[in-house]
Amino acid sequence: MAVTLKSPADIQDALRARFRARRLVLNLTQEGLANRSGVTLATLRRFERTGLIAFDSLLKLALVLDCLGDFEKVAAEDERSLIGRPLDAVLAQKRGRRKGRIT
């Protein structure tokens, strides 16, 4: 497991800035992105200002900004390590890793 020194607020701010930058590179106004995505203009403005947004709205924006596929990587794990294993065994292994034990 990788260790990160970024806080959730740091990541939220970086994501907000990247979405805004991507919108501008694609030459979309806030109104244009809101219309294309189905996200209200107020929601988009709040997101670009504060980083706060509902997850489904974030995914709608990502679809229009052509970065929806990036979300498939979030919390992804090697499928081979999960196939055929009971959920309790997978969760126990994860708990053991967090405590520094090898299971």
Rank of each mutant, 00 (worst) to 15 (best):
L28Y: 13
R18F: 01
S81R: 10
A21G: 05
T40C: 03
A92Q: 13
V25I: 12
L58V: 04
Q93I: 12
P86A: 03
G69I: 06
L26Q: 08
I11Y: 12
K94Y: 12
F19L: 02
S81D: 05
F55D: 06
P86I: 00
N27F: 07
L26R: 09
I102D: 15
L44H: 02
F19N: 00
A34Y: 06
T29Y: 10
R49S: 08
L28R: 08
L82K: 10
G32K: 14
A14G: 05
L28P: 08
F71A: 02
E31M: 08
R36A: 15
A14L: 11
G96T: 06
T103A: 09
G51W: 02
L87G: 02
L15S: 03
T50M: 05
L61N: 03
L24T: 01
A62K: 00
I102F: 12
V25L: 00
A2H: 13
N27V: 05
L41C: 08
A92C: 10
I11N: 14
S37V: 02
S37D: 02
E48P: 08
L15P: 02
G69C: 07
R23C: 11
I83R: 15
I102R: 14
M1R: 14
E72S: 13
V90E: 06
R80S: 10
T40D: 11
D66F: 04
R16S: 01
F55H: 07
E31L: 12
R46S: 08
C67R: 11
S37M: 04
L15D: 05
K6Q: 07
K60L: 01
R95W: 09
D13W: 07
G84M: 11
K73H: 08
L59V: 09
K94R: 15
V90D: 06
E31A: 14
F47C: 04
L68K: 13
N35C: 06
R36L: 15
I11G: 11
R22Y: 02
I11E: 15
L26G: 01
S81T: 10
E77Y: 01
E79M: 06
F19P: 04
F71H: 07
L44Q: 04
L61Y: 03
K60D: 02
R46A: 05
V90S: 06
G51I: 04
T43P: 06
T29S: 15
R98E: 06
T103S: 14
L63A: 15
R45Q: 15
D88H: 06
L26H: 01
G100I: 12
N35W: 05
A42F: 00
